[in-house]
């Protein structure tokens, strides 16, 4: 067994030299992701942190096969994402920053729909059980348009988990939530890692995610500027809190 195969087996997600450029009318060519490399193990929560416009969402969208990179290789749960994007989509779940819940459908209908499309055996029961597990059973038959942001987050997580993905990609999962909502969602995310899933979440709010993440990657202008455990990143930035480390690393006042 080669070293690369062994690494691919133990890591849920491997990115190597990912590059993505955009061409805009006003700014010309913009490098959104600049030779980004990272590896996340199965059962690990990886926090992709950075200011707005750092390239976090673009990176996650490329991982989710919603955008194409200009260069670089990606392996998702042992599947080469570039040569087999459909296979990659089978083993991952992407939760965009927007809830993506049609306002006229109920949470139960949405989760059951995704179970059906994913070909989940006994999908309806699994969808119902997941909504129960996520604490969304009491409003599972309400219209999604009537739900609060916190309720929607739970539904979106249930939708993402319905096919038991190996890799979970979460874009700003706590955005718009109050303190209680943030804690609940982060706790649910931690549970997913403990169940053996690879979790990568993006956020621009440092303090709230440090309780659940195992490792951090701080990106700025598409480049990785610091990576490691919380202690390692604090040491690299010579600061005592993640907020301070973030400010020091991305050079914003």
């Amino acid at each position: 067994m080669s070293w690369a195969t062994l690494v691919a087996m133990t890591h849920g997600l491997i990115l190597e030299n990912l590059v993505k450029r955009f061409h805009t009318a006003s700014r010309g060519e913009v490098v959104a992701v600049d030779h980004l490399s990272l590896a996340v193990k199965a059962g690990e929560v990886y926090g992709l942190l950075g200011p707005n416009g750092a390239g976090k969402t673009t990176t996650l969208r490329i991982l989710a096969t919603l955008a194409e990179a200009d260069s670089g290789t990606i392996t998702v749960a042992g599947v080469d994402r570039n040569s087999n994007p459909m296979g990659a989509r089978e083993v991952l779940a992407y939760v965009p920053a927007e809830a993506g819940l049609p306002v006229r459908l109920s949470p139960r209908e949405v989760v059951r729909l995704f179970a059906r499309i994913q070909g989940v055996t006994d999908g309806n029961n699994r969808a119902d059980a997941l909504l129960e597990r996520m604490g969304a059973a009491s409003y599972a038959d309400m219209a999604c348009g009537e739900l609060s942001t916190g309720m929607k987050r739970r539904v979106v997580l249930a939708r993402a988990l319905v096919h038991q993905p190996q890799v979970l990609l979460l874009d700003e999962p706590t955005d718009g939530l109050d303190v209680h909502g943030r804690r609940e969602v982060l706790s649910l995310i931690r549970e997913q890692a403990e169940a053996g899933r690879t979790v990568i979440l993006s956020s621009h709010i440092m303090g709230e995610v440090e309780r659940v993440i195992d490792r951090i990657g701080v990106v700025n202008h598409g480049k990785m500027v610091a990576e490691g455990t919380l202690d390692e990143v604090l040491a690299q930035s010579k600061t005592s809190s993640l907020d301070d480390a973030f400010v020091a690393l991305v050079h914003t006042p």
């Binding site: 969208r61 989710a64 096969t65 919603l66 459909m86 296979g87 989509r89 089978e90 991952l92 779940a93 992407y94 939760v95 965009p96 920053a97 927007e98 809830a99 993506g100 819940l101 049609p102 306002v103 995704f114 499309i117 994913q118 939708r159």
Partner: peptide, 17 residues
């Protein structure tokens, strides 16, 4: 509408053509 509220992205991240 589905593009703006993320519904379309959620559908496009499914293992379907």
């Amino acid at each position: 509408r589905d593009r703006d509220d993320g519904t379309l992205e959620a559908e496009l991240s499914l293992p379907i053509s």
